[in-house]
Simulated scan of single mutants.
Amino acid sequence: MVQAIGIDVGGTLTKVAFFEHNQQLKLLHFPSVDLHIVSEWITSYKEDIQIGLTGGRAEQLKTFLRSHENLQYLVEFDATIAGVNYQLKKDNHEFTDAVITNIGTGTSIHSLKGTEHERIAGTGIGGGTLLGMSALMTGIHQFDEIVELSALGSRSEVDMLVSDIYFGNKTPIDGGLTASNFGDAGLRPLMERSKEDVLATVQGLVGEVISTLSIQCAFAEDIEHIVYIGSTLANNEPLQKIIGNYTKRKKRTPIFLTDNGYSGAIGALLSKIDGK
């Protein structure tokens, strides 16, 4: 019997977390454009079920749930950090200080030191950028297809590296670093590029901007570990590889949680389980 549900209503996806009768954590997601489907799923349970609700579009979902009296809204940042702490323990990580980078439609970056946390940075570059740029440049709208095709592409003839600028001369910084995302694209028309290469380069742009900002925050806060979370990373090995490699290159430790898109929903669930 399900007694409580945690819901994170994001700009693109609505994530749901609950414990089944055997105390196994169950995770689901729905498109946020179809909130009536989410409400129908919830109302299939008894009306007195405990609901923890968070996320940017939580107020919209609440309009579908007026009959539910046991509904509590949580500040998104608080719910996300609570979920991250739960997941870190579940994945056997023992550190207490970390930069938390939440890659949703945009990206929000937090400092976690023990039990204290605060938002320290953010950027409009995120999953919305990945989907939007991919659609505009290739006509492909589906996330799974973008990920699949990007894994087959190469950024080598679209991005401009530091070494490309110096033409074999000694570079003042690592020549393998990206000097300009899409910097070589002007040398040949876009229609002559393969969709795979373009999508790989979009992933590179998103990954490098987010990891660069996260690394700068980690240095400023004197923190080693950067925990990358968010639905944009789910089953997105190319993006995880870009972010992970760049973070390691800059002498910081990247952490990718097992269920990296569900931290907010898990935190919202825990608020009802723990009686907070």
Rank of each mutant, 00 (worst) to 15 (best):
F167N: 12
T171K: 00
V198R: 02
R188E: 14
H117P: 10
A121Y: 08
D164F: 06
K15W: 12
K90R: 15
K248D: 15
L130P: 05
A17G: 01
E94K: 14
I49M: 05
F219E: 14
V84I: 13
V206R: 05
N260C: 14
I255H: 11
E40L: 07
I5Q: 13
E69Y: 15
G175L: 05
E94H: 13
Y262F: 08
L25D: 00
Y86H: 11
S180V: 03
I173R: 11
H225Q: 11
A220S: 07
V38Q: 03
R252H: 15
P31R: 07
Y262P: 03
T54E: 01
G175R: 07
G104Y: 12
T107G: 03
K46T: 08
N92Q: 15
L270Y: 01
N70F: 14
V198D: 03
I243A: 10
I146C: 06
F30N: 04
S180K: 03
L257Y: 06
E237K: 01
V209G: 04
I49V: 06
S180Q: 05
K62E: 01
Q240N: 11
V147I: 10
K170V: 14
L13M: 07
L71F: 05
T63V: 04
I266W: 02
K46W: 03
T80F: 02
I243T: 09
L190A: 08
F182I: 00
T12F: 00
T253C: 07
F167W: 12
D159R: 00
A58N: 05
L71I: 14
A4I: 01
G104V: 12
V158W: 06
A58D: 06
G267F: 04
E116K: 09
W41Y: 13
G124D: 09
K90Q: 12
E145C: 11
A220F: 04
M137R: 07
G275C: 05
V202I: 13
L13N: 07
F18D: 03
D159P: 03
Y45Q: 12
Y228R: 01
D184H: 14
E224K: 12
D274M: 05
L25K: 01
S263A: 08
F77D: 03
Q240P: 12
E76N: 07
Q60M: 15
I100V: 13
I229G: 11
P238H: 02
